[in-house]
Amino acid sequence: MKVFIERKKQTINMQFTGTVNDLLKKINQNPEAVLVAVNNELVANDCKLKNSDSVKILAVVSGG
């Protein structure tokens, strides 16, 4: 699975199946502070992810 973390401008490739919540726990992101998009659509926290998904973790806080 390709996971892009917006805040760090970093893409990680990982093997993963599970829900959005599981993923956020695994990569240490607070669900309150991020939005998760799969193939460019937002998804709910219990959404099941497939290894072939392209996932974006978008930061909620903006500065300035």
Binding site: E32, A33, L35, A37, L42, L58, V60, V61, S62
Partner: peptide, 11 residues
């Protein structure tokens, strides 16, 4: 909440 505004902007 800020998160909902971010989601709204995205949608």
């Amino acid at each position: 909440p800020e998160k909902q505004i971010a989601a709204y902007s995205f949608m």
